[in-house]
Design a protein around this nucleic acid. Structure first.
Lengths: 238, 238
DNA sequence: TCTATTATTGACGTTTCGTCATTTTTTGAC
DNA sequence: GTCAAAAAATGACGAAACGTCAATAATAGA
């Protein structure tokens, strides 16, 4: 029915608008400054209406986190199917580029993810949205893990008996997540001699992959150039 | 004067008690559940008295974070001067053991650090405590950086022209901080095949250091055993 | 013992959350 | 076009929390 469709569309549009407002507010005044009253007044709706979309404040935060993880998953998928890759490790480099671009292009998405990981907002939120987070997280891991398993299958990579593809995934995830968290939250990097953390991250990541003996090694291929290409060709760096 | 000393001592004791209560509360009911009224009522003091110790709620959180970073700094210092080290890389392993022990023994300390890094509580807090955080952070980095510079001086480690000891520090920090953050905040590690993340972290860290060609390499020395020894000998693992 | 200083209190104003009875709008049958 | 039923929107309200401050109590020292 036409009317139902229009209603639903309006509902979705309004929901998107609430989230847009919330995202901006979160960015400007932080987690604590985010207020339902202010969202309501900035929208042209009353508070009660906002509460028809989201049970509570935490649900809004989690909805923002859902958008964030969804976006990253999408970017990981684009990166993993990049046609320019000539080897499995190129595809890992492409994922690295996606992670880099994600933080650059959507810093608020990354910030929300951090908030959700540290503040305990889980109790009050819906099972549905919590599950969505896990699905996105799991699929991102599957993408990276899949590339590692491809590498194993093609002989680009071997692992000692007690290590699995998942350990590689965990290593890359830790290193990247940790680095971006520190970069966005520490004020004293510069004065402690860390002038170009992103370049350092790329380097450290490649050293770790070299440690896994994932060929071609860093010395034999310019993965920095590969990452820059991916950022340009897949994500349209200006 | 005797009286002043007693007063001051009482004041410090009460401050410690406030922080103890706050820590427990933070752990039980999370950042949002932490309430000044509840702290006041659980202490046998009124709210006004609490506010004579801490300007606001954020100051309490930051004071907890200060304790956390101070504790870690102390553990890093103990680890870095461990007498059992036979080479510079042993000392790095010792730091790794300290980081591991820190999260194990004081999980609430680590949780507070994460909160402080993500929630924007900085604006309302005192310059003094903010600075203390940076000092601790900087000194931890200096300890690790110092070991790297020792390694360079002794020829255990060489770096390419465009890399510095600080990049090694940043790599270790990222990898560790990221790993512990993920471990304490992700619910789906197990079902995604990451069964022993701490073992994986140790492995990944060693691979990265191998990538830097920090000798003796992982294959030539059992750094896992070194870390276990440090945890036993320095931090008294039961 | 008495006054001056210091410490403590808790009621208060404000803000925000989340609810719900009331009002407004929309829908669809006639 | 009319009207009753359903759906949507409203904002006043109670509860809870923050941070303040005038009033009160405790203490120190003359």
């Amino acid at each position: 029915m036409v009317t139902v469709t229009r209603k639903q569309r309006e509902r979705l549009e309004r929901e998107a608008k609430i989230l847009d407002l919330a995202r901006g507010m979160l960015h400007e005044v932080g987690y604590l400054g985010l207020s339902m009253d202010r969202i309501a007044s900035q929208m042209e709706y009353s508070k009660g209406t906002i509460y028809q979309h989201f049970q509570n404040k935490e649900e809004i935060i989690l909805a923002l986190a859902n958008e964030a993880l969804e976006k990253r998953l999408e970017m990981f998928e684009s990166a993993s199917t990049w046609s320019g890759a000539t080897c499995s490790r190129d595809r890992i480099a492409a994922i690295g580029a996606a992670a880099e671009k994600f933080v650059e292009q959507y810093p608020h998405h990354f910030a929300v993810e951090q908030i959700v990981r540290s503040a305990s907002i889980w109790e009050k939120t819906s099972e549905e949205r919590r599950q969505f987070m896990q699905v996105c997280e799991g699929r991102c891991m599957q993408i990276v893990g899949g590339i590692a398993r491809d590498g194993l299958a093609h002989g680009d990579l071997e692992l000692p008996a007690e290590r699995s593809a998942e350990d590689v995934v965990f290593g890359l995830w830790s290193l990247n997540f940790g680095a971006y968290t520190i970069v966005t939250s520490s004020e004293s990097l510069e004065e402690n001699g860390i002038r170009d953390p992103i370049a350092a991250l790329r380097h450290n990541q490649n050293l770790m992959l070299d440690g896994y003996n994932w060929r071609p090694l860093y010395g034999d291929r310019d993965y920095d150039a590969v990452m820059d290409r991916v950022k340009r060709e897949v994500f349209g760096n200006e």
